[in-house]
Each structure stands twice: as structure tokens, then as C-alpha cells.
Design a binder for these strands. Structure first.
Lengths: 213, 213
DNA sequence: AAAGATTATGAACAGTGTTTAGTAAAGTCT
DNA sequence: AGACTTTACTAAACACTGTTCATAATCTTT
């Protein structure tokens, strides 16, 4: 093999992995997770179904790859906020970023937070879920900094962080599963729903603010 | 047909519907939702797979039946608390009942709140989801009563109710999907986790309490 | 051009939800 | 009791699914 060919092939291999992932992501978003078959992914990238198994061991591995990617995206949304010096303002930004992420990528959000399959896979991997821990560490750190400024006084940092995460996660889950729209005034449009979510979030922020002093 | 035969047959038919539902519930709890096949349910009740379709139109209809049943169970957990006259105490009781329900019936909980399939089915049914609305109405009413006693002053009843529901739902979802245990100190036992959940809940209660006056 | 190593696939396996056509049982009527 | 009708049930098939494996096609090296 003359020089560079190995690299080119390696590159092609990576390209194909990406193509598979992109096709999978698209189809998942369109049809949902369970409803997307390996065969459909294969057809989309114009390869045989069996080929996919040369690049990914499992359907789970594909899901897991998207899981991992989605998490990095979320963390990157958080890291943009690092320039905000006031920790409570940063915390608010994180909340908004979290909601935005969930609304813009509802399927990836479900993938990450509402399914246990990829989590089981992660448990056997020992790696990569760092992303998840990291995201929570960022929250912990931010809440800790808030406490130095007399927010959440007399509360344990971890507990408050969990309450915050729970609220955000609950809100996003209720939204993406459609429960919010079912319980809210029946014929609410998507726009109204987003507004409702915003106002719920702002209410939560005010609640947190009242915990100062 | 002599008298009583129609009734007996009707009764048998109802019995079989129940048998199917019970078998399904058991298998769902054991193996999970997707992993339970109609064939497995059929084998458990010692009937042919096709027979099940004489009693339920779909697998979805079975899921929906369990969904409905689970919701009635949750609402009944709430109604027990009606004797508590102080609304905030009742609200606390509801929170604890909600958590207890989620921990004792994790699969039904997931069924009800983390899946959209049965919800879509409900959307075409126009009925039965009353249960869901009713549960939320109970929350709304309780929060409203709390406000008369100067809790959650200057907040919109609906918004506060959504925040509360979100927090409880988020907490339970994080627990049942395993995310809580992944982020919490790695080797936490189930007991430790339940304790953690309790302490998170109590923290939330204290937060709500601080909103008085 | 021949040999060797990758890469891709067609066909099959075991499983799924679901439908249909046909059988066996139960109930009804004379 | 025997014939007829209605009901209850099921075996077999269909169109899917994820996954594997022997085989074929392609590319690399000699």
C-alpha cells in the first residue's frame, strides 16, 4: 500500500461511521427510536444492512454513540456560559440552555434521559458517562458558588442541585412526552406551550431567588 | 339461551381480560415493556396468541389498559389524603404518595409518564385521560388552598403547581431510569438511594415552606 | 497477473405484532 | 336427541425486526 492510502481508507471508514450516525439520527428524529430499523438506516446510506454491523456492533452501540454525542452537545451549551461571572445568572443561563436543548433535540433528550438501555451499556463501559457526571459537576460547582453569595443558605449543595435538576428534567420530560399539553388548556398551540414552559421556568427562578438571605 | 348464561359468559370474558392484563403487568414488570411479547403473555395464560386479539385490539390497548389502571391507583393514593385538613400537610402527603407510587410501581410509572404511545392512544379516545386531568386538578386545588393560607404568595396557582409536579416527576424519573444512582456516589445501595430521594424531597419541602409569608 | 487482505452483501435464523381462514366447542331450537 | 347457529379458539401465514455468516467483490501487495 503506497503512502497515504491507509490514511485515506481510515478516513473513509470514519466517514462511513459518521454517515451511519447521521442517517440514524435523522431517522430517529423522524420516526422515533424503536420505529427505526437497521434496514432503514442501511437503505438511507445505500449500503446493505449487514455492512452496518462492520462499523457498529449493535443497534445499541449506535444509540449509545448518539447518546454520547448528545451529551457533549449539552455540555458544550453549558460551557458557553462560563463567561458569566455571577453564578446565579450563570445558573439561570444553564436552565435556559437545558430547556433549549431539550426542545431543539427532543429525541436525543429522550434518548439521554428517558431510556435506560444506553445507560446499561454505559455501566459496562466505565467511560463516556463522564459526560453525564461532568454536567452534574458543573451544576454542583455553580450552586456552590451561589451559596457563597448567600443563595440557598442552610441547604446542602448536593440536595439543592438535585432539586434543580429534577425540576428542569421534569419540566422538559413533561413537555417532550406531551403531558404538559394534555393538562394545560386543551387547545394550546406549540407557541403557547413554549410560553407556558418559559413562565413555569421563570416562576422557578423566582422561587430560587427567594431563597437568598 | 336459558337465563344467566349470557351473564356467566360475560363474566368469563371479563375474567379472561383480567387474566391477560395481570399476566401482562407481571411480565412488563419482570422483563420490561418492549421485551414482553404477545406470545409470552399468551403462554402465561395458556392460550393461543391470536386469542388475545379477541379481547384486546392491540398491544397498545393492553398498555393503555394498564396505563388507565395505574392512574386510578395513583389518584386513589391521593384520595386517601383527603382527611388531612391542612392543605400544605396534604400537599406534602401527596408528594410522598407520588414518590411511593413511583418507587413501588416503576414500570407502571414509566408507562404512564415516560411514554407517549399510550398518550397518543388517549388523544384519540377523548376519555379516560380524565384521570390525568383529575390528578392535576387535585394538585391545583390543594395549591390554591395553600395560597389562602399565605403559602406561595404572589405566584400563579397553575405555575406553582407545574413547578411542583415537574420537580416530583423529575425526581421520580431520574430515579426510575437510574440516573440518580449514576450521578450519586457511585456505589450507593438501593436503601441509600431511597434515603437520598427522601432527603431531596425534604429539601424541596423546606424550599416550598420558605415561600410562606 | 497471482496471492492476500479488506470490505460488502445475500440469504438465512429466530424473534416480533398482527390477520385470516378454518376448526372445535357451546348454545339454541325443533 | 339431532340438526343448526353462534361463539371461542387456534394453526398458519405475513410482513416486519435485529443479527449472523458464508460468499462474493474489491482493493493492496508481491
Amino acid at each position: 500500500m503506497h503512502m497515504g492510502v491507509a490514511e485515506r481508507k481510515e478516513r473513509h471508514k470514519e466517514d462511513l461511521k459518521r454517515e451511519i450516525l447521521d442517517a440514524a439520527k435523522l431517522l430517529f428524529a423522524e420516526k422515533g427510536l424503536e420505529a427505526t430499523s437497521i434496514r432503514a438506516i442501511a437503505e438511507k446510506i445505500e449500503y446493505s444492512p449487514a455492512t452496518i454491523y462492520l462499523y457498529y456492533k449493535d443497534k445499541n452501540e449506535i444509540v449509545h454513540a448518539l447518546h454520547s454525542e448528545g451529551f457533549k452537545l449539552l455540555v458544550s451549551h453549558f460551557e458557553v456560559l462560563n463567561h458569566i461571572s455571577h453564578p446565579f445568572e450563570r445558573l439561570k443561563g444553564m436552565g435556559r440552555a437545558y430547556i433549549q436543548f431539550a426542545l431543539q433535540n427532543p429525541d436525543i433528550y429522550k434518548l439521554i434521559f428517558n431510556m435506560e438501555e444506553p445507560l446499561k451499556h454505559v455501566a459496562n463501559c466505565f467511560e463516556e458517562w463522564d459526560e453525564g457526571d461532568r454536567a452534574f459537576d458543573i451544576l454542583l460547582k455553580t450552586v456552590g458558588e451561589c451559596q457563597k453569595l448567600d443563595y440557598f443558605k442552610d441547604f446542602a449543595t448536593e440536595q439543592v442541585s438535585f432539586v434543580i435538576w429534577s425540576t428542569m428534567h421534569g419540566l422538559c420530560t413533561l413537555r417532550t412526552t406531551g403531558h404538559l399539553s394534555h393538562v394545560a388548556a386543551a387547545k394550546a398551540s406549540d407557541q403557547d406551550l413554549d410560553q407556558l414552559m418559559s413562565s413555569i421556568f421563570e416562576t422557578f427562578v423566582i422561587i430560587l431567588e427567594k431563597l437568598k438571605t
